[in-house]
Design a binder for these strands. Structure first.
Lengths: 202, 202
DNA sequence: GTCTATAGGCTGATAGAC
DNA sequence: GTCTATCAGCCTATAGAC
């Protein structure tokens, strides 16, 4: 006995290998560089074998997205405990933008490729998107109570504008390397100051 | 004589037809839906004929980008005369986001597809990108002198963050229809208030 | 200038042998 | 479970006839 377990273990290993190699390919060549043939060759199986583990190329993309977003989240969540809201904003923005620029192709896949994939993040059973958004909602609340943002602003749009601003910085830098001529640090600092009461402090 | 002129006119007409149809295809099916075969069929020429007017598909994309950016610019420039900076910001942001959402595939092609194309906007001889950026730099200056933004902020990073924030709103809405749950109006308003002294006014 | 024809490549996905 | 072989389609770009 135990042969069932061994088979399942082997099966899981192949699946993991597929994802690992697929990820490497995306990192190196972008999502469009991920093809079933090249993937098969890299894991030393025939193309057909992949379809025993994933329904199609789309399913692989979704699995990669889930993985990638969890990693982004892992970088944001520890920062949520900083009590001073403006400092927390600076830290979160720095981490978010840093992640995007360090993993450009992963970020592209997550947020700049197909609405299907991005939407999935907010629908997945793990609700990774919702958890990340909660961190920003909490930040928006604290920006208000600590007097950085006006009382009159609604929390949800404020959190969404913050996400949008961070996403905008990352995606501009990725799509147009020459345009935002300022350094990431300067941009993050400016964004932070823009959302702080004194405009430059803490 | 005049046959030379006629020929040149005809040549220009074919070129214009190619661009017109190419644009329709992009609008309807996105940039990846633009193929030389389908384009040829639509203008009732053979695929080979297109190569007499454009070096390749890339050249068509660049021409479309230039066109698209000029249209965006045409919507932004008239607003540059509003004297109250915070109002000008509201108007510019509304126009920018409006353009992106009304022409999603054009916007995607301009700013979310290939770094090559986006970079071209800032390198083209017409310097369309530079002109658009000037509008924002001017806005950033006035936000400072009118006391909306802190004196300590540098103008260029501020202008870049503003562009990033607007771009972030558009691209999030395009890539993830369900995420920013707030209306465009609420988001633009929140962004404006965030950059205004009182946090909610004018 | 415009055509036909085609080179030469790629793709995702599947049927059926072993 | 894994393979080979292949389907059915797409693509950009070009050679050479007219």
């Amino acid at each position: 006995m135990g042969t069932v377990e061994r088979r399942e273990r082997q099966r899981a290993e192949v699946r993991a290998a597929i994802l690992r190699v697929a990820r490497e390919m995306v990192v190196r060549e972008g999502f469009e560089g991920l093809t079933m043939r090249k993937l098969a060759e890299a894991i030393e199986y025939s193309p057909a074998a992949i379809y025993l583990h994933f329904e199609n190329r789309d399913a692989i993309a979704r699995a990669l997205c889930l993985q990638g977003f969890e990693e982004l989240l892992a970088r944001l969540e520890p920062l949520r405990h900083e009590p001073v809201a403006s400092r927390r904003l600076r830290a979160l923005a720095g981490a978010y933008v840093g992640f995007g620029l360090e993993h450009p192709e992963t970020y592209r896949l997550l947020f700049m490729t197909d609405p299907k994939y991005t939407t999935d993040i907010f629908r997945s059973s793990e609700d990774a998107g919702g958890r990340a958004f909660q961190v920003l909602v909490r930040l928006a609340e604290d920006l208000k109570t600590q007097g950085d943002a006006a009382e009159s602003m609604s929390v949800v749009p404020l959190a969404e504008v913050l996400w949008g601003a961070m996403h905008g910085l990352v995606s501009l830098k990725l799509t147009c390397p020459i345009f935002p001529s300022s350094s990431v640090e300067a941009l993050v600092e400016t964004l932070t100051n823009l959302c702080s009461r004194q405009g430059a402090s803490t």
